[in-house]
Simulated scan of single mutants.
Amino acid sequence: MARTGGRLTEFVTTFREGPTEVRERALGPDLARGFMLLFIALANSHYFVRGTSYFGGFPQDGGVVDRAISWTIATFVDGRAFPMFGLLFGYGVAQIVRRQSGRPRDTRRLLWRRSLVLIVLGLLHGTLLYVGDILGAYGVLLLLGAWTVRWKDRWLWIIAVLVFVLTALPSDGSLAITTDGPDVSMVPPDLATQFVERIKVTPLIAALGPIGFAGPFLIGLWAGRRRILEFPDRHRTLLRGTAIVGITAAVLGAQPVALMIARVIDRQDHLDYFGPLHDATGVLGGFGYAALIALWSIRLADAPGPITRAIAATGQRSLTCYLAQSVVWTIVFTPYLLDLSDDLGITGTAVLATATWAATVLAADRMNRAGYRGPFELLIRRFTYRSKQRVPSR
Protein backbone atom coordinates (compact mmCIF):
# COMPACT_ATOMS: atom_id res chain seq x y z
CA MET A 1 0.00 0.00 0.00
CA ALA A 2 1.15 3.59 -0.63
CA ARG A 3 -0.25 6.94 0.37
CA THR A 4 -1.21 9.04 -2.67
CA GLY A 5 -2.69 12.52 -2.34
CA GLY A 6 -3.74 11.90 1.25
CA ARG A 7 -5.54 8.62 0.58
CA LEU A 8 -4.47 4.98 0.53
CA THR A 9 -4.26 3.59 -2.95
CA GLU A 10 -3.25 0.01 -3.65
CA PHE A 11 -0.56 -0.45 -6.24
CA VAL A 12 -1.32 -2.72 -9.16
CA THR A 13 1.06 -5.61 -8.56
CA THR A 14 0.79 -7.19 -11.98
CA PHE A 15 2.43 -5.41 -14.89
CA ARG A 16 0.05 -4.48 -17.69
CA GLU A 17 0.82 -2.88 -20.99
CA GLY A 18 -1.55 -0.65 -22.93
CA PRO A 19 -3.34 2.57 -22.03
CA THR A 20 -3.98 3.50 -18.43
CA GLU A 21 -7.46 2.66 -17.22
CA VAL A 22 -9.52 5.41 -15.61
CA ARG A 23 -9.49 3.80 -12.16
CA GLU A 24 -5.67 3.78 -12.25
CA ARG A 25 -5.28 7.43 -13.28
CA ALA A 26 -3.99 10.06 -10.87
CA LEU A 27 -6.17 13.10 -10.28
CA GLY A 28 -3.49 15.80 -10.73
CA PRO A 29 -2.63 15.44 -14.45
CA ASP A 30 -6.27 14.99 -15.49
CA LEU A 31 -7.38 17.96 -13.42
CA ALA A 32 -4.62 20.08 -14.96
CA ARG A 33 -5.58 19.12 -18.52
CA GLY A 34 -9.27 19.72 -17.86
CA PHE A 35 -8.83 23.11 -16.26
CA MET A 36 -6.26 24.32 -18.78
CA LEU A 37 -8.67 23.64 -21.63
CA LEU A 38 -10.46 26.77 -20.42
CA PHE A 39 -7.25 28.72 -20.96
CA ILE A 40 -6.81 27.12 -24.39
CA ALA A 41 -10.30 28.31 -25.35
CA LEU A 42 -9.59 31.84 -24.13
CA ALA A 43 -6.20 31.88 -25.88
CA ASN A 44 -7.57 30.76 -29.24
CA SER A 45 -10.87 32.58 -29.57
CA HIS A 46 -9.72 36.22 -29.37
CA TYR A 47 -7.67 35.86 -32.56
CA PHE A 48 -10.92 35.73 -34.57
CA VAL A 49 -12.13 39.19 -33.51
CA ARG A 50 -11.98 41.85 -36.23
CA GLY A 51 -10.94 45.44 -35.58
CA THR A 52 -9.28 48.43 -37.19
CA SER A 53 -5.86 47.76 -35.64
CA TYR A 54 -4.27 44.94 -33.66
CA PHE A 55 -1.58 44.20 -31.15
CA GLY A 56 -0.77 40.80 -29.71
CA GLY A 57 -3.80 39.27 -31.41
CA PHE A 58 -6.22 41.74 -29.77
CA PRO A 59 -8.17 44.48 -31.58
CA GLN A 60 -7.19 47.88 -30.24
CA ASP A 61 -10.53 49.66 -30.59
CA GLY A 62 -12.55 48.08 -27.74
CA GLY A 63 -13.95 49.74 -24.63
CA VAL A 64 -12.80 49.62 -21.01
CA VAL A 65 -14.18 46.13 -20.35
CA ASP A 66 -12.55 44.76 -23.49
CA ARG A 67 -9.25 46.31 -22.45
CA ALA A 68 -9.47 44.82 -18.95
CA ILE A 69 -10.23 41.35 -20.33
CA SER A 70 -7.42 41.71 -22.87
CA TRP A 71 -4.98 42.51 -20.04
CA THR A 72 -6.21 39.50 -18.04
CA ILE A 73 -5.82 37.09 -20.96
CA ALA A 74 -2.41 38.50 -21.95
CA THR A 75 -1.21 38.24 -18.33
CA PHE A 76 -2.55 34.86 -17.24
CA VAL A 77 -3.44 32.92 -20.39
CA ASP A 78 -1.62 33.71 -23.63
CA GLY A 79 1.67 31.85 -23.90
CA ARG A 80 1.05 30.17 -20.53
CA ALA A 81 -1.47 27.39 -21.26
CA PHE A 82 0.27 25.81 -24.27
CA PRO A 83 3.62 25.26 -22.48
CA MET A 84 1.72 23.50 -19.72
CA PHE A 85 0.13 21.19 -22.27
CA GLY A 86 3.60 20.54 -23.69
CA LEU A 87 4.73 19.57 -20.19
CA LEU A 88 1.72 17.28 -19.74
CA PHE A 89 2.29 15.77 -23.17
CA GLY A 90 5.84 14.80 -22.21
CA TYR A 91 4.57 13.55 -18.86
CA GLY A 92 2.05 11.32 -20.62
CA VAL A 93 4.74 9.93 -22.92
CA ALA A 94 6.82 9.02 -19.85
CA GLN A 95 3.79 7.14 -18.50
CA ILE A 96 3.42 5.24 -21.76
CA VAL A 97 7.09 4.29 -21.78
CA ARG A 98 6.93 3.11 -18.16
CA ARG A 99 4.15 0.66 -19.03
CA GLN A 100 6.06 -1.03 -21.85
CA SER A 101 7.93 -4.25 -21.15
CA GLY A 102 9.37 -4.80 -24.64
CA ARG A 103 12.56 -3.65 -26.30
CA PRO A 104 13.27 0.08 -26.73
CA ARG A 105 12.73 -0.37 -30.48
CA ASP A 106 9.19 -1.63 -29.85
CA THR A 107 8.47 1.34 -27.60
CA ARG A 108 9.68 3.75 -30.26
CA ARG A 109 7.44 2.10 -32.84
CA LEU A 110 4.47 2.45 -30.50
CA LEU A 111 5.26 6.15 -30.02
CA TRP A 112 5.70 6.62 -33.77
CA ARG A 113 2.26 5.13 -34.38
CA ARG A 114 0.86 7.60 -31.88
CA SER A 115 2.74 10.45 -33.57
CA LEU A 116 1.39 9.43 -36.97
CA VAL A 117 -2.23 9.53 -35.87
CA LEU A 118 -1.64 12.93 -34.22
CA ILE A 119 -0.09 14.30 -37.42
CA VAL A 120 -3.00 13.05 -39.55
CA LEU A 121 -5.58 14.36 -37.09
CA GLY A 122 -3.72 17.67 -36.93
CA LEU A 123 -3.69 18.11 -40.71
CA LEU A 124 -7.41 17.33 -40.91
CA HIS A 125 -8.19 19.55 -37.93
CA GLY A 126 -6.15 22.46 -39.28
CA THR A 127 -7.69 22.21 -42.73
CA LEU A 128 -11.31 21.57 -41.80
CA LEU A 129 -11.76 23.40 -38.48
CA TYR A 130 -9.05 25.54 -36.85
CA VAL A 131 -5.93 26.60 -38.68
CA GLY A 132 -4.01 27.14 -35.42
CA ASP A 133 -3.94 23.38 -34.75
CA ILE A 134 -1.37 22.03 -32.26
CA LEU A 135 -1.99 18.30 -32.73
CA GLY A 136 0.22 18.11 -35.80
CA ALA A 137 3.01 19.88 -33.91
CA TYR A 138 2.67 17.39 -31.06
CA GLY A 139 2.83 14.56 -33.58
CA VAL A 140 6.03 15.88 -35.16
CA LEU A 141 7.48 16.48 -31.70
CA LEU A 142 6.73 12.89 -30.68
CA LEU A 143 8.14 11.57 -33.95
CA LEU A 144 11.47 13.12 -33.00
CA GLY A 145 10.99 12.88 -29.24
CA ALA A 146 10.66 9.09 -29.36
CA TRP A 147 14.46 9.05 -29.49
CA THR A 148 14.71 11.09 -26.26
CA VAL A 149 12.71 8.82 -23.96
CA ARG A 150 15.88 6.87 -23.06
CA TRP A 151 18.05 9.92 -22.56
CA LYS A 152 19.66 10.47 -19.20
CA ASP A 153 18.09 13.13 -17.03
CA ARG A 154 20.93 15.59 -17.42
CA TRP A 155 20.54 15.61 -21.21
CA LEU A 156 16.82 16.26 -20.93
CA TRP A 157 17.62 19.30 -18.79
CA ILE A 158 20.55 20.50 -20.91
CA ILE A 159 18.55 20.47 -24.15
CA ALA A 160 15.44 21.94 -22.46
CA VAL A 161 17.44 24.83 -21.02
CA LEU A 162 19.19 25.39 -24.35
CA VAL A 163 15.86 25.58 -26.19
CA PHE A 164 14.50 27.93 -23.51
CA VAL A 165 17.48 30.28 -23.86
CA LEU A 166 17.32 30.28 -27.67
CA THR A 167 13.58 31.05 -27.74
CA ALA A 168 14.10 33.83 -25.17
CA LEU A 169 16.52 35.72 -27.41
CA PRO A 170 15.30 39.01 -28.97
CA SER A 171 12.99 38.38 -31.91
CA ASP A 172 10.12 40.11 -33.68
CA GLY A 173 8.37 36.82 -34.48
CA SER A 174 6.43 36.46 -31.22
CA LEU A 175 2.63 36.27 -31.39
CA ALA A 176 2.62 38.38 -28.23
CA ILE A 177 3.60 41.45 -30.28
CA THR A 178 2.05 40.69 -33.65
CA THR A 179 0.15 43.52 -35.31
CA ASP A 180 -1.72 41.20 -37.67
CA GLY A 181 -5.43 40.51 -37.51
CA PRO A 182 -7.30 37.38 -38.61
CA ASP A 183 -6.17 36.51 -42.13
CA VAL A 184 -7.93 34.65 -44.92
CA SER A 185 -6.71 31.27 -43.69
CA MET A 186 -8.39 31.88 -40.33
CA VAL A 187 -11.65 33.39 -41.58
CA PRO A 188 -11.93 32.14 -45.18
CA PRO A 189 -14.74 33.60 -47.31
CA ASP A 190 -15.61 30.25 -48.90
CA LEU A 191 -14.78 26.56 -48.68
CA ALA A 192 -12.44 26.55 -51.67
CA THR A 193 -10.34 29.40 -50.24
CA GLN A 194 -10.27 27.62 -46.89
CA PHE A 195 -8.69 24.49 -48.38
CA VAL A 196 -6.25 26.37 -50.60
CA GLU A 197 -5.00 28.71 -47.87
CA ARG A 198 -4.95 26.29 -44.98
CA ILE A 199 -3.12 23.56 -46.84
CA LYS A 200 -0.25 26.05 -47.07
CA VAL A 201 -0.26 27.04 -43.40
CA THR A 202 -1.15 23.87 -41.47
CA PRO A 203 1.96 21.83 -42.40
CA LEU A 204 4.15 24.84 -41.59
CA ILE A 205 2.65 25.14 -38.10
CA ALA A 206 3.12 21.41 -37.56
CA ALA A 207 6.77 21.65 -38.60
CA LEU A 208 7.69 24.75 -36.58
CA GLY A 209 5.47 24.19 -33.54
CA PRO A 210 7.79 21.62 -31.90
CA ILE A 211 10.41 24.34 -31.39
CA GLY A 212 8.25 26.02 -28.76
CA PHE A 213 7.02 22.77 -27.20
CA ALA A 214 10.37 20.93 -27.05
CA GLY A 215 11.54 22.37 -23.71
CA PRO A 216 8.31 21.68 -21.79
CA PHE A 217 8.10 18.24 -23.41
CA LEU A 218 11.56 17.26 -22.17
CA ILE A 219 10.88 18.56 -18.66
CA GLY A 220 7.60 16.62 -18.75
CA LEU A 221 9.54 13.45 -19.54
CA TRP A 222 11.78 14.11 -16.54
CA ALA A 223 8.81 14.79 -14.25
CA GLY A 224 6.95 11.75 -15.57
CA ARG A 225 9.86 9.46 -14.71
CA ARG A 226 9.54 10.61 -11.09
CA ARG A 227 5.72 10.57 -11.13
CA ILE A 228 5.71 14.03 -9.59
CA LEU A 229 2.16 14.89 -10.60
CA GLU A 230 0.85 11.44 -9.69
CA PHE A 231 2.29 11.56 -6.16
CA PRO A 232 2.33 15.30 -5.37
CA ASP A 233 2.39 14.76 -1.61
CA ARG A 234 5.91 13.35 -1.98
CA HIS A 235 7.11 16.45 -3.84
CA ARG A 236 5.43 19.31 -1.98
CA THR A 237 8.58 21.43 -1.65
CA LEU A 238 9.43 21.17 -5.35
CA LEU A 239 5.84 21.87 -6.39
CA ARG A 240 5.44 24.84 -4.05
CA GLY A 241 8.66 26.42 -5.27
CA THR A 242 7.74 25.82 -8.90
CA ALA A 243 4.27 27.29 -8.43
CA ILE A 244 5.51 30.42 -6.65
CA VAL A 245 8.47 31.13 -8.93
CA GLY A 246 6.77 30.12 -12.17
CA ILE A 247 3.50 32.01 -11.74
CA THR A 248 5.21 35.10 -10.30
CA ALA A 249 7.64 35.20 -13.24
CA ALA A 250 4.80 34.72 -15.71
CA VAL A 251 2.71 37.56 -14.27
CA LEU A 252 5.60 40.01 -14.02
CA GLY A 253 7.10 39.07 -17.38
CA ALA A 254 3.77 39.57 -19.11
CA GLN A 255 3.26 43.15 -17.94
CA PRO A 256 5.11 45.14 -20.63
CA VAL A 257 3.10 43.45 -23.40
CA ALA A 258 -0.13 43.12 -21.40
CA LEU A 259 -0.19 46.82 -20.47
CA MET A 260 0.43 47.79 -24.10
CA ILE A 261 -2.34 45.48 -25.27
CA ALA A 262 -4.72 47.04 -22.74
CA ARG A 263 -3.54 50.52 -23.86
CA VAL A 264 -2.57 51.45 -20.31
CA ILE A 265 0.83 52.47 -21.65
CA ASP A 266 1.84 53.49 -25.16
CA ARG A 267 3.45 50.95 -27.42
CA GLN A 268 7.16 50.94 -26.61
CA ASP A 269 10.30 50.50 -28.64
CA HIS A 270 12.32 47.28 -28.40
CA LEU A 271 9.28 45.03 -28.87
CA ASP A 272 11.71 42.35 -30.03
CA TYR A 273 12.75 42.10 -26.35
CA PHE A 274 9.30 42.32 -24.78
CA GLY A 275 7.74 39.61 -26.97
CA PRO A 276 10.29 36.91 -26.08
CA LEU A 277 10.12 38.02 -22.42
CA HIS A 278 6.38 37.40 -22.47
CA ASP A 279 6.86 33.99 -24.11
CA ALA A 280 9.80 32.81 -21.99
CA THR A 281 8.15 33.67 -18.69
CA GLY A 282 5.01 32.00 -20.03
CA VAL A 283 6.89 28.70 -20.14
CA LEU A 284 7.72 29.14 -16.47
CA GLY A 285 4.10 30.02 -15.82
CA GLY A 286 2.95 26.81 -17.50
CA PHE A 287 5.17 24.85 -15.11
CA GLY A 288 3.80 26.91 -12.23
CA TYR A 289 0.18 26.21 -13.16
CA ALA A 290 0.85 22.46 -13.38
CA ALA A 291 2.51 22.53 -9.96
CA LEU A 292 -0.31 24.57 -8.40
CA ILE A 293 -2.99 22.22 -9.69
CA ALA A 294 -1.00 19.20 -8.50
CA LEU A 295 -0.88 20.73 -5.01
CA TRP A 296 -4.58 21.47 -5.22
CA SER A 297 -5.24 17.82 -6.13
CA ILE A 298 -3.76 16.68 -2.79
CA ARG A 299 -6.67 18.30 -0.95
CA LEU A 300 -9.25 17.10 -3.44
CA ALA A 301 -8.08 13.49 -3.83
CA ASP A 302 -9.73 12.13 -0.67
CA ALA A 303 -13.25 13.27 -1.57
CA PRO A 304 -13.44 14.88 -5.02
CA GLY A 305 -16.72 16.70 -5.50
CA PRO A 306 -18.86 16.65 -8.64
CA ILE A 307 -17.13 19.68 -10.17
CA THR A 308 -13.68 18.19 -9.58
CA ARG A 309 -14.75 14.88 -11.08
CA ALA A 310 -16.26 16.64 -14.09
CA ILE A 311 -13.11 18.69 -14.77
CA ALA A 312 -10.95 15.57 -14.36
CA ALA A 313 -13.24 13.75 -16.81
CA THR A 314 -12.62 16.61 -19.23
CA GLY A 315 -8.88 16.12 -18.83
CA GLN A 316 -9.29 12.41 -19.53
CA ARG A 317 -11.00 13.40 -22.79
CA SER A 318 -8.84 16.42 -23.57
CA LEU A 319 -8.41 15.55 -27.25
CA THR A 320 -12.15 15.25 -27.87
CA CYS A 321 -12.87 18.42 -25.88
CA TYR A 322 -10.13 20.37 -27.68
CA LEU A 323 -11.57 19.40 -31.07
CA ALA A 324 -15.08 20.26 -29.86
CA GLN A 325 -13.89 23.80 -29.18
CA SER A 326 -12.77 24.11 -32.80
CA VAL A 327 -16.20 23.04 -34.02
CA VAL A 328 -17.64 26.01 -32.12
CA TRP A 329 -15.05 28.45 -33.54
CA THR A 330 -15.78 27.20 -37.05
CA ILE A 331 -19.54 27.61 -36.75
CA VAL A 332 -19.42 30.98 -34.98
CA PHE A 333 -16.63 32.79 -36.82
CA THR A 334 -16.43 31.39 -40.36
CA PRO A 335 -17.72 34.01 -42.84
CA TYR A 336 -19.82 31.52 -44.81
CA LEU A 337 -21.48 30.30 -41.58
CA LEU A 338 -22.48 32.62 -38.67
CA ASP A 339 -19.68 35.15 -39.28
CA LEU A 340 -19.73 36.79 -35.83
CA SER A 341 -16.13 38.05 -35.86
CA ASP A 342 -17.38 41.64 -36.20
CA ASP A 343 -20.09 41.31 -33.56
CA LEU A 344 -18.72 39.62 -30.44
CA GLY A 345 -15.65 41.64 -29.49
CA ILE A 346 -13.12 40.57 -26.86
CA THR A 347 -15.71 40.36 -24.09
CA GLY A 348 -18.09 38.36 -26.25
CA THR A 349 -15.45 35.87 -27.29
CA ALA A 350 -14.30 35.45 -23.68
CA VAL A 351 -17.87 34.62 -22.67
CA LEU A 352 -18.18 32.27 -25.64
CA ALA A 353 -14.89 30.55 -24.76
CA THR A 354 -15.95 30.06 -21.14
CA ALA A 355 -19.39 28.75 -22.16
CA THR A 356 -17.81 26.39 -24.69
CA TRP A 357 -15.44 25.01 -22.06
CA ALA A 358 -18.31 24.59 -19.59
CA ALA A 359 -20.31 22.69 -22.22
CA THR A 360 -17.40 20.31 -22.82
CA VAL A 361 -17.08 19.76 -19.06
CA LEU A 362 -20.75 18.77 -18.89
CA ALA A 363 -20.40 16.51 -21.93
CA ALA A 364 -17.25 14.87 -20.53
CA ASP A 365 -18.99 14.28 -17.21
CA ARG A 366 -21.90 12.60 -19.02
CA MET A 367 -19.48 10.39 -20.95
CA ASN A 368 -17.68 9.51 -17.73
CA ARG A 369 -20.92 8.52 -16.01
CA ALA A 370 -21.83 6.40 -19.03
CA GLY A 371 -18.42 4.70 -19.00
CA TYR A 372 -17.49 6.09 -22.42
CA ARG A 373 -13.86 7.05 -22.94
CA GLY A 374 -14.40 9.62 -25.70
CA PRO A 375 -14.37 9.09 -29.49
CA PHE A 376 -10.96 10.53 -30.30
CA GLU A 377 -9.32 9.01 -27.22
CA LEU A 378 -10.55 5.60 -28.37
CA LEU A 379 -9.33 6.28 -31.90
CA ILE A 380 -5.80 7.22 -30.89
CA ARG A 381 -5.51 4.36 -28.40
CA ARG A 382 -6.71 1.75 -30.87
CA PHE A 383 -4.25 2.97 -33.45
CA THR A 384 -1.38 3.23 -30.95
CA TYR A 385 -1.99 -0.15 -29.30
CA ARG A 386 -3.17 -1.99 -32.41
CA SER A 387 -1.18 -5.09 -31.45
CA LYS A 388 -2.89 -5.29 -28.03
CA GLN A 389 -6.07 -7.21 -27.47
CA ARG A 390 -7.33 -5.04 -24.62
CA VAL A 391 -8.08 -1.38 -25.16
CA PRO A 392 -10.40 -0.53 -22.25
CA SER A 393 -13.01 2.17 -22.55
CA ARG A 394 -12.89 2.81 -18.82
Rank of each mutant, 00 (worst) to 15 (best):
V93H: 02
F76P: 03
F89S: 01
Y47K: 07
S101E: 11
R105F: 10
D66N: 11
L116F: 06
R99F: 10
L141R: 09
T52D: 11
T52W: 02
A74N: 09
L144I: 15
Q60F: 10
G102K: 13
R80N: 05
L88H: 14
H125T: 01
Y130V: 00
L143R: 06
A94F: 10
G63Y: 06
H46C: 05
V77K: 00
F89E: 00
R108V: 14
F58C: 02
G136K: 00
W112K: 14
V97N: 02
G139N: 04
R108F: 08
V120S: 06
W155N: 11
F85S: 06
I96H: 06
S45M: 12
T72K: 02
A137Y: 01
L87H: 05
I73H: 01
R50L: 09
I119R: 02
I73C: 03
G92N: 07
W71K: 05
M84Y: 14
H46Q: 13
I134S: 03
R114S: 07
T72G: 14
G56M: 11
Q100M: 14
I96T: 15
P83C: 09
A94E: 08
W147L: 15
G86T: 12
Q100I: 05
T72I: 09
L143D: 12
Q100P: 08
G126K: 07
R113K: 14
T107S: 15
T75A: 08
R80E: 02
F55N: 02
V64H: 10
F82N: 06
A74W: 04
D61E: 09
G51T: 04
I73P: 00
A137P: 01
L142G: 04
F55M: 08
G63F: 13
F85I: 14
